Simulated assay, not measured.
Amino acid sequence: MSEQPFTPYQIFNLKLETIEQRVMDFYEESRDGTTTIKLLIALRVRYQLGAEEFALVLKDLVKYLFTRTKATRTMKHFFFYFRDYFETSEWKQLNLRLFPVRNFIEKAKSIVLSPFAKFFPLEVSTT
């Protein structure tokens, strides 16, 4: 297991400007997208715990990682935590980019099931 670049104390106590600069420096030096995504998730936790200034921390870096780098397992795992960083159209494109097989299966199911929809409606009864 690789050594973490920041201690929990640093992640949860440094000022916004300081942590942003250090995370950017870490990524520029290491080009380790997986660890950077994990650090960004920790900063999302800090935001959820009440640090409002961390709402869209390092938005440009997040967009760069998800749109311009190779998709990794970590990216796919934490993708949905970054929903508010993207516009609707960007989100749809990223979803297609990161999960092409899932989208293909959903599209194929809808095409195959559409002729049968008039005979077997998929309605949920409320009784």
Rank of each mutant, 00 (worst) to 15 (best):
M1K: 10
E3A: 13
Q4G: 14
P5W: 02
F6Y: 10
T7N: 07
P8A: 13
Q10S: 03
N13L: 05
E17V: 13
T18C: 09
T18M: 07
R22V: 11
V23T: 02
F26T: 11
F26R: 10
E28A: 09
E29G: 03
S30G: 01
R31Q: 12
R31A: 08
G33R: 13
G33A: 15
T36L: 03
I37K: 12
K38R: 14
L39E: 07
L40A: 04
I41K: 09
I41Y: 14
L43Q: 09
L43T: 03
Y47F: 10
L49W: 05
F54S: 05
A55K: 10
A55G: 02
V57H: 05
L58A: 00
L61D: 03
K63F: 00
Y64F: 06
L65N: 05
F66I: 01
F66V: 00
T67W: 02
R68N: 04
T69K: 01
A71W: 00
A71K: 10
T74I: 08
M75R: 07
M75N: 10
M75G: 14
H77F: 14
F80W: 12
F80G: 09
F80P: 03
R83K: 13
Y85P: 12
Y85M: 13
F86Q: 10
S89Q: 13
K92T: 11
K92A: 12
L94W: 00
N95K: 08
R97A: 04
F99I: 14
F99G: 12
F99C: 11
P100T: 06
R102D: 05
N103E: 04
F104C: 08
E106I: 02
K107I: 02
K109S: 06
I111M: 11
V112T: 13
S114E: 09
S114L: 06
P115H: 03
F116S: 11
A117R: 15
F119K: 07
F120P: 12
P121N: 11
V124E: 12
S125L: 13
T126W: 09
